[in-house]
Design a protein around this nucleic acid. Structure first.
Lengths: 147, 147
DNA sequence: ATGACTGCAAATACTTTGCACATGT
DNA sequence: ACATGTGCAAAGTATTTGCAGTCAT
């Protein structure tokens, strides 16, 4: 996997905005998370990053993920106390965790439903994030599928 | 705080169903969580339990909480990677975490909205849990209020 | 007596941090 | 040269576990 010209630029611009440098490590981590559709954990991102850069360390992966979060290029997803997962999809949406296969999938959340959710709170409440997570079993999901 | 006659019986019955014993420790932990309205963490439950039973250990509190979860007398609430919180409210509802005061409050979730949420998933999906968490600032919330 | 429960201390899992070295401008 | 970033190893936090001793029936 290689960083596309386009993503490369997105990264550089976002880092620039915060006065941060584009480094090879950040490029690698961003290329991994930016193209991942399976909500990988830090460990999984570490493993995939090492394929592109065998010398990268787990601590650096965590550092880079932190930086990418600050740049708002990626997001975290948490399911109970399991390892934090990372994804490039920034639009408000829900998640489904399949107990059978262990996979996490995005669930589309229509805008009107999203706003109905925030209306559950007193009007004067400022909401900074909404997290909607489902858990259960997907039909026909393989046992322990990996993307 | 003392275990009410009524809750005592609820506990004994629920434990009985799983062939488990009612112990003083379980009674204490259940009396703490069962009457708490502030979604305490294991540490907070430990502190409150020690007021009734100074010799109780944190490990036992965790053991008891695990048992109470199995009996379906209490539930867990997780906010990102923060300490797990426990609550006696078993009805489907949402949670709001106030960044200013640190308090967690229940948010009523109307039944029709709850079912609209589960309809986001393919009909054949079996859903075992729905978690809806808000984060933000409550109006007029004190700094670091404790219930 | 037997099986279940407690509570200590150690282990675990995930994540963060301090710091010496490396790197880019 | 200077500020920033990397990566190792160590620390930290929340939770779980092994096990010897204790308790209830």
């Amino acid at each position: 996997m290689q960083v596309s010209e386009e993503n490369q630029q997105t990264l550089t611009q976002a880092l620039d905005k915060l006065g941060l440098r584009s480094t090879r490590q950040r490029e690698v981590v961003y290329s991994v998370v930016g193209t991942a559709k399976d909500h990988p954990t830090a460990d999984e991102i570490f493993a995939r990053s090492r394929q592109q850069m065998p010398t990268i360390s787990l601590a650096t992966v965590y550092n880079c993920l932190e930086t990418l979060l600050e740049c708002e290029l990626i997001r975290q997803v948490n399911f109970e106390r399991e390892s934090t997962r990372y994804e490039p999809n920034l639009k408000p949406h829900a998640h489904f965790y399949c107990d059978k296969s262990g996979q996490v999938v995005d669930v589309h959340l229509p805008e009107d439903l999203y706003s109905r959710l925030t209306e559950l709170l007193p009007a004067s409440t400022s909401v900074s994030s909404v997290e909607l997570n489902f858990r259960g079993k997907l039909p026909n999901s393989p046992e322990n599928h990996q993307n």
